[in-house]
Nucleic acid binder design. Structure first.
Lengths: 347, 347
DNA sequence: ATGAAAGCGCTAACAG
DNA sequence: CTGTTAGCGCTTTCAT
């Protein structure tokens, strides 16, 4: 391996000068600089980031801690958003999948400390995620997709309440009154807020919220399927459903198909978190699209600003989701079921 | 930050002893060891991986260089395969998306050298990918998904020829004779081999290969769509198509739908690379499933074996794909077109 | 079995 | 403007 000493010798200067040239210090003789650069080229010299990190006590690396890169396009897009900013700012990324496991998460947070990373972008696995070691080592942290109470960290989230509101208001506008909700664990801000958006929208429209039409599942495919099966088995099943993430939506669609029912005639469906294949489904699936890439971008920018010296109060950036209307939530056919469509007893 | 010196002082021993305890050296007094461990706990000491890397000249980090984590589940699964092995062996991962850009790839390879990573798992962006700097720095490299000529690196690939063979043989068995192929750039081993599997299978079945039914696109959605449009515009269009990756398959399906045609009645379709939503499509999509997670797993294992001292010749691990038969390639209806279905003139 | 001390490759005072 | 030198935190001879 060729080191800075080799370059210094080849260029006939001291290592300090080589270092200055490489780090573009202002006061270096241009002629010496070019000699050094030539030596660097000739020797194919690559400065050791490890040595540099040890010396400067800052590592041009971030840890990106998420739940699971495989759960669909969402985290993949977030990751790319973060990476694109990191790359152009000269940072590299440790990819850390926690699988929502607090132990694995803690272990990756330890890694971040041990590697002395410059910053961390993290989707907390739950409300008990401990950022203490990062705080005490002075490592800036940006939370993405989920908030954490009282940690004082910059946070970037999607307006989940708004997204759920858009979805449910759209269903109500389509003439659906018996609207169910399949949400995720209420311990997650996403699961809770999407439910809250659902409930509030119904209330504000004067439609009562029935607990039996609310199912709390686990954000996974099998959970969504089981929840939908339960809804369908009800004495008075709903006529539309808002499902709080894409994996559960897949499960719900399966359950509907298995029951021999049609979307949207028998059950209108709106999912949360758009997927590129939503329009390929028959019928095409209405979803609340999240700006996942932008989520990553904004997180990275907040982190960068901290690394560039900003030290103000914690910032919360809330990004708006977008309702993508497709056929799975087409308005209720008035002609087909006039009795139901007009039998609005709650008004 | 608390260092090894703090621990040594707290435990009343030398830093050497602390180091020995932490690295589980054989000859340490158990009593001293426990004193040290206590001090470590009390101080919440985390050894600096940076300093350790500098000193030992090996970094417990791998670089994982792929094209783009967002192109669907494939790379996400590969990544998880690699990460799961890396994590349990105590390694962390740099995620490096090249977007097939040779410059970005080169820049990430430089990073790997500069960070002195322990190993690299890489999907080469093309045949000109230069592994020289890694070779000369003694960093083991494992190629995944795509081969590279004469680089002497361990490689893990899917048997693309076999996969294409399975797909095309299945279509032929279903009574389809006019089978087209939309493949990727022939400069990639995947694009070339999937085409080769297609062509050979037709030849061996005595079915002539027509160049006009072969389209070379770019592995992207728009490319697949354009290619399919061209095929449909032909004077004698095919009756079935084998599409060499999932993004292009999505494009092809769109083109078919836009032309007002039905799958499989007007056009049978088999895609390459399965997706979790294949069975949600109407009709469900037949695909050649790749063992993506296992691809990552095997790559990581090969890398580990090198790090554990194996220094034999380069190994090539070839994993078999699996045909997942669904309705998009249902056998030709005998009743509808008896003349074609029985008109097997080559026998 | 333990400690003292050197040094991994680099940067940043401090001199000059 | 450039060189000398100390030292980042750790591991590893070399003594003892």
């Amino acid at each position: 391996m060729t080191t800075i000493v080799d370059v210094a010798r080849a260029a006939g200067v001291s290592t300090a000068t080589v270092s200055r040239v490489l780090n573009k210090h202002p006061h270096v003789d241009p002629r010496l600089a070019s000699v050094v650069m030539q030596a660097v080229k000739d020797l194919g010299y690559q400065p050791s980031r490890v040595a540099r990190s040890l010396r400067t006590r800052r590592n041009r690396v971030w840890a990106l801690v998420i739940s699971d890169i495989r759960t669909g396009p969402f985290f993949a897009d977030v990751v790319r958003g973060v990476e694109d900013v990191a790359y152009s700012a000269g940072y590299s990324l440790f990819l850390c999948n926690t699988d929502e496991d607090p132990l694995k998460e803690a272990s990756y947070i330890n890694l971040a400390v041990a590697e002395n990373v410059g910053g961390v972008v993290l989707t907390p696995s739950g409300p008990r995620t401990d950022l203490g070691s990062l705080a005490s080592s002075g490592t800036p942290v940006v939370l993405v997709d989920r908030k954490l109470p009282d940690q004082g960290a910059d946070t970037v989230v999607v307006d989940n309440v708004l997204g759920a509101t858009q979805a449910v208001a759209h269903l109500l506008a389509g003439g659906y009154q018996r609207v169910a909700c399949i949400t995720g664990p209420l311990s997650t801000t996403t699961g809770l807020q999407r439910y809250q958006g659902y409930a509030r929208t119904l209330e504000q429209a004067g439609v009562p919220v029935h607990d039996r039409w609310v199912r709390v599942a686990d954000f996974r495919e099998a959970g969504g399927r089981a929840a939908m099966q339960e809804l369908l088995a009800l004495a008075e099943p709903p006529e539309a459903v808002f499902v709080a993430n894409n994996l559960m939506t897949v499960g719900a669609l399966q359950a509907i198909a298995e029951a021999g029912l049609e979307v949207p005639a028998d059950m209108a469906v709106v999912g949360f978190d758009d997927v590129p294949w939503a329009s390929l489904l028959r019928p095409p699936l209405t979803t609340v699209a999240q700006p996942a890439y932008d989520l990553g971008l904004e997180s990275a920018r907040l982190l960068l600003s901290r690394l560039e010296g900003y030290s103000g109060a914690a910032r919360l950036v809330t990004l708006a989701p977008t309702l993508r209307v497709r056929e799975s939530s087409a308005p209720k056919a008035q002609a087909t079921r006039p009795a139901v469509a007009t039998g609005d007893r709650d008004k």
